[in-house]
Amino acid sequence: MELKRTETSNIPFSLHDSRIVKIEINNDELIFNLDNVYEYRNGSEEYYPAKMKFKDIDFEECNIIIFDRQIGKGKFAGIRCGIKEFSENYEGAEFEILTETYGGYSTTLEGLIWKDECEPVSGIITIWTMGDVVFEFEKQNY
Rank of each mutant, 00 (worst) to 15 (best):
E2K: 12
E2G: 08
K4H: 10
K4S: 08
E7D: 04
S9Q: 10
S9N: 10
N10A: 11
F13Y: 13
L15N: 06
S18L: 08
S18W: 05
V21Q: 07
K22C: 13
K22W: 03
E24L: 12
I25D: 12
N26Q: 06
N26C: 01
N26T: 08
N27I: 05
N27T: 12
D28M: 10
D28Q: 15
F32T: 03
D35K: 11
D35Y: 12
V37L: 04
V37Y: 04
Y38W: 13
E39Q: 12
G43Y: 07
E45V: 15
Y47K: 13
Y48D: 02
A50M: 04
A50V: 01
K51N: 01
K51V: 00
F54D: 00
K55P: 02
I57S: 02
E60Y: 06
I64E: 00
R69S: 15
G74D: 08
G74P: 09
F76K: 03
I79V: 04
I79W: 00
R80V: 06
R80L: 03
G82Y: 08
I83N: 01
K84D: 14
F86N: 00
E91M: 15
E94Q: 05
F95H: 02
F95P: 00
E96V: 03
E96Q: 14
I97S: 03
T99H: 14
E100D: 15
Y102A: 04
G104P: 00
G104Q: 10
G104W: 04
Y105K: 14
S106A: 03
T107E: 08
T107S: 14
L109P: 02
G111A: 03
G111P: 05
W114L: 15
W114R: 09
D116Y: 07
D116M: 10
D116N: 15
E119V: 06
V121L: 00
V121Q: 06
V121H: 02
I124F: 02
I124G: 00
T126K: 06
W128H: 13
G131W: 02
G131Q: 11
D132N: 13
V134P: 01
V134N: 03
E136G: 11
E136V: 10
F137E: 09
E138F: 15
Q140P: 00
Q140S: 09
Y142I: 11
